[in-house]
C-alpha cells in the first residue's frame, strides 16, 4: 500500500508528520496514530474537521458538502473525506473551521 507523509500543523502549536495510506482519510490516520483532530459527521457534511492545505495533493473521496466554492479556492479541505495523493502539509485544529464563516454583522 502506498503511503504518504502528511504533516499536521497546529497553529500556535506543534507540527507532527504521520504516514497516511492512500486509501485512508487523514482523520482515520490521525485517530490510528492518536493525534487529536476535531471531527463530526465523518461524511463531509459538517466541516468540523476542516483543515487548510498548504502543500501537496489531497483528494476528497466524497462530495465536500460543507465547503463552498470560495473555501475550496482558498485551500480548505475536509480531512474526514480527504486522502493523500502525495506528501502534504496541512494546517489543522479547531481554529481552521472557525475561519469558514465570519460574523456577518460585524
Amino acid at each position: 500500500m502506498v503511503t504518504h507523509e502528511v504533516t499536521l500543523d497546529w497553529r500556535d502549536g506543534p507540527t507532527r508528520t504521520i504516514a497516511v495510506a492512500a486509501d485512508e482519510t487523514v482523520v482515520e490516520a490521525a485517530r490510528r496514530t492518536e493525534q487529536t483532530l476535531p471531527y463530526g459527521c465523518l461524511y463531509g457534511a459538517c466541516g468540523t474537521c476542516t483543515g487548510r492545505l498548504i502543500a501537496g495533493d489531497l483528494v476528497h473521496t466524497e462530495r465536500a458538502r460543507a465547503l463552498k466554492p470560495r473555501h475550496s479556492t482558498e485551500g480548505y479541505v475536509l480531512l474526514c473525506i480527504a486522502k493523500p495523493r502525495s506528501d502534504c502539509h496541512v494546517e489543522v485544529g479547531a481554529t481552521v473551521q472557525a475561519e469558514l464563516v465570519s460574523n456577518p454583522w460585524k
Binding site: G40, C41, A45, T48, V101
Partner: peptide
Amino acid sequence: APKTYYPGFDLD
C-alpha cells in the same frame, strides 16, 4: 439542510 447550518451561519 445539515450541510447548510453545520459549517456555520452564512447570510448568503
